[in-house]
Design a binder for these strands. Sequence first.
DNA 1: CTCCGATATATCGCTTCTATATATCTTCGG
DNA 2: CCGAAGATATATAGAAGCGATATATCGGAG
Lengths: 177, 177
Amino acid sequence: MQVTTLCLGALVFGDATGYEINKMFEDGPFSHFLDASYGSIYPALTRLTDEGLVTCKAEPQERRPDKKIYSLTEKGRLKLRDALQQPVADDKFRSEFLFTLLFAHLLPRDRVRGMVDARLAAMKKKLAELAHPDEEDTPGMDFARQYGHAVYSASIDFLENNRHLIEEIATEEEAHV
Amino acid sequence: MQVTTLCLGALVFGDATGYEINKMFEDGPFSHFLDASYGSIYPALTRLTDEGLVTCKAEPQERRPDKKIYSLTEKGRLKLRDALQQPVADDKFRSEFLFTLLFAHLLPRDRVRGMVDARLAAMKKKLAELAHPDEEDTPGMDFARQYGHAVYSASIDFLENNRHLIEEIATEEEAHV
DNA sequence: CTCCGATATATCGCTTCTATATATCTTCGG
DNA sequence: CCGAAGATATATAGAAGCGATATATCGGAG
């Protein structure tokens, strides 16, 4: 799924600037299961404008470059609906954390403990973000939020209950003292 | 984390060809939480060889190009150990499935049902792969396997218990008949 | 006995990420 | 009341990596 499609999707929720679309991926509703950055968003918006799938209204601003507000066209709406009917790629999970733990036996125990602590903290933060429904959320967002909450809960439980297994494997450094 | 580091890690488990390393990402022990492809693996192995972090032994084969077997050097082993002490990137989860469901209200109900069925099937397949410990697995692999099992179990449970929420939102097509 | 999938190496083109440059406004602590 | 830091906003260069493809052979299914 290309960034152009993701941008069309973002604009379904209302007109937005490139900056605002970026925020949706960074902090906003998409942040938990998608990512895209300026380097792909701005070129994508240009391409979409060329193809007539979005329109761009430049709003003049004093002492700064124009704010470019993008809106979905009817053609863009149809294109999105079409794209959403195409087969989706498998969910992908990427974890340098788990990769590193494959080599726990090569690492000092403190390093392993620190990594587990950091990951737990990060996941608990995410869990808190996902804990409460937002009244502005669409039903789809609410579903995604609950899904995320369930998965993070399970991850945290597993890590808390099983961290000793991996920490035992790490090399004990205290012998060096 | 660069592909070079991932390749160093792959070679800790034994000498291998580029083809075999690719399989580790596609089917093997890394497949559940990492990905890399020929386009990055082969160039990475060349770079690692140039830097003396791995050695390459060409094994002549009849009627085909030589099989190039890569081995970790002591220098490479140290480099890996060093790389594993660097801060790891956050885990990343990418789901076009959840993205598409954000627009469930724009999609025919059959499409949504089909997507959920497909995702459940894919996750159950993954769960089955992760269900049983392999005697050849290292402790780190076993930990990752159990982690994956816990997360997939939770995902499947959530989807089975809550799929009606998203399916109700989809547009009912039967009215058109 | 043919065709397909696995084995095996390798590269090209395109997409996309990371980091950075530029410029202004707001907010908040000292 | 000032200065620093962070938010707003656009945009691109450079590096990295994915997906597809090309080449070639072998074993097994049908």
